[in-house]
Design a protein around this nucleic acid. Structure first.
Lengths: 346, 346
DNA sequence: CTGAAAGCGCTTACAG
DNA sequence: CTGAAAGCGCTTACAG
């Protein structure tokens, strides 16, 4: 494989000049640049990123660590981050941790520190007691709710407010027995806790008493199957309810499935709302009302903050940005008289 | 940040000895090893992977390049490859290409050649005329149908046979007007072409003439919305049909949505079948019959083949492995009298 | 079982 | 506008 030195020799210059050409250094005679580029082309030269990295510390690569790609929220988040980073000329490597503690610590331990310029990290296993691990010597931007107010920049969903809005939407429709799927007993911090707070706040403001029978814990992984299981337990218990709030869309879609199986009419008997606004919400029957959490904004902001830190800019203190959410009303709560339903996709 | 030399100094040895300890070299006095490990611990030393890489060429990292994570098939494939690679002690970096030609060429050009020990690559933009680009000087395993019989190891779905099985399943149910969504006119090779071949073969065997009105092209990206659009066009055209075969599950689910909107009963009026067996198939109403393409096997085989190539083993000639598929019959084709429908999730 | 020397392929800092 | 020297932090090849 050709090295920079080979290119230099062929072009009749020093390797410094080749390096200058490749790095866009402006003060190069046009004829020199042309000769260098020709030599690069002829030799099929590709720079060795490890070597450049070893010397300069830069790689042009950032890492995005998330729990699991099978959860649509994270898959869509990845695509959005890749998009935002690409606009800045960066490559993203995605590092799924499986929500495994050890692999999440790896992200922070710096094992791959030298491969990337910075890291965007959405933890699942690590919690609020472990903020000390975030004290790292590389640019790091945190996502999610597991560790708030840590020592780094942080981009988060306005979870409590969004959950309150979702609950209020159901209350506005006249629902009073609203089940939630997503509680995580024992969790001190995390999306589950914060969203539950928002739910409870809305109930309290409406003068409705908390009923623990309506608060369901589907487990750590918010897949469809967990939502289906939780809903089945609620039905089996015979608890009365007229609405369901899934703390993410896959939980809500799993619950919706079980409700339809049981013969409930949606939303007449039970209104259903989710959270994340994944693509699939538009295609369930009926389409699922959801909270759009500001995914694009989260991705863009995380990349922007990281870019500043990598450039050594930004304020000394860490920043906490909360993205803007939107309630997306669809038929799973709003309903439509079936006569006016269109065959067109909403 | 501490270097190997710092560790060596602290332990009173040479950096070679530190290197030996870290790389599991067996012939080290136990007391020496203990001193080195203690020094590593005290200094919080982390090896610089770029430096090791520059010298040795090994990184312990493999790249997986796929079009887009928002497509559930690829998200689930990623998780499966990460799992299979992790069992071998490898880290995976995921490189979404967006199906953009230039970024797919980047994967092969070696820009990041020095960051990874090998690459697993599922192209979308690159096609059969471009097999020459696969002639690279690093271990590469190809996935998908875009470039068959290239110069590298290849793992593929038994697409034609699987599509034939899916079509035969519909024929066995007595369906005769089977629409397909997923054709890609102008494509010379790819999943669309091969699956269409399988469909046509099944029809021919059953003595049914091809009807181009039933062959729908949803575009390059097989998202739900593309499936919905294609189905809407079919309905608008007034073409009669009694079954739909979506070339992937998201196309089928988009079509299913439009069919339900239009008031069709599934499967009584129209039977629907997909391809990929994504998690969501179990939660649509009705649940979607699909082809499980052997995802786990594909992931495991791709990693195994790559491991052999990285180790410099394996036969000189390239290998082509076809994964085993399974037809997963669910209610979108089989139906169930509603009386016997259980509230349980299948 | 361990060490001293050389070098992987770049970029930095300094000249000119 | 361009070059010669040094060095980033490891591992290889060779001694002992």
């Amino acid at each position: 494989m050709a090295t920079m030195r080979d290119v230099a020799r062929r072009a009749g210059v020093s390797s410094k000049t080749v390096s200058n050409v490749l790095n866009g250094y402006p003060y190069i005679k046009e004829s020199t640049r042309a000769r260098v580029l020709a030599a690069i082309d002829e030799l099929g030269y590709q720079m060795n990123i490890s070597a450049r990295n070893l010397r300069s510390g830069r790689t042009g690569i950032i890492a995005l660590a998330v729990p699991e790609l099978t959860l649509p929220y994270f898959a869509q988040l990845c695509d959005a981050v890749i998009e935002a980073a690409g606009a800045k000329g960066w490559t993203v490597i995605v590092e799924p941790t499986g929500g495994v503690r050890e692999r999440e610590l790896d992200v922070l331990s710096g094992v791959r520190r030298h491969l990337v310029d910075g890291v965007i990290f959405s933890p699942l296993a690590l919690g609020p007691d472990e903020a000390q691990y975030l004290q790292v010597d590389f640019p790091l931007v945190m996502l999610g709710e597991r560790i708030l107010h840590g020592p780094t920049d942080h981009v988060a969903i306005s979870n409590a407010e969004a959950a309150r809005t979702a609950t209020q939407h159901l209350l506005d429709l006249g629902r009073r027995r609203i089940a939630v799927i997503g509680a995580n007993p024992g969790e001190v911090a995390g999306a589950a806790t914060v969203r539950l707070d928002g739910y409870l706040a809305a109930l309290e403001a409406a003068g409705i008493k908390r009923d623990d029978d309506l608060i369901l814990a589907p487990g750590l992984w918010w897949h469809r199957t967990a939502g289906a299981g939780a809903m089945q337990r609620l039905l089996d218990a015979g608890t009365q309810f007229d609405a369901v709030f899934g703390f993410n869309d896959t939980l809500a879609l799993g619950a919706l499935h079980v409700l339809l199986r049981s013969g409930r009419r949606i939303p007449e008997d039970v209104a259903v709302i989710g959270f994340d606004d994944i693509e699939e919400t538009r295609f369930s029957m009926p389409p699922l009302t959801s909270i759009e959490p500001g995914r694009e904004q989260i991705a863009r902001t995380a990349v922007d903050l990281l870019a500043e830190r990598i450039a050594g800019k930004g304020p000394t203190e860490h920043r906490e940005i909360y993205a803007d959410f939107t309630l997306q009303v669809r038929e799973s709560t709003a309903g439509l008289p079936s006569a006016t339903r269109s065959a067109k996709t909403t």
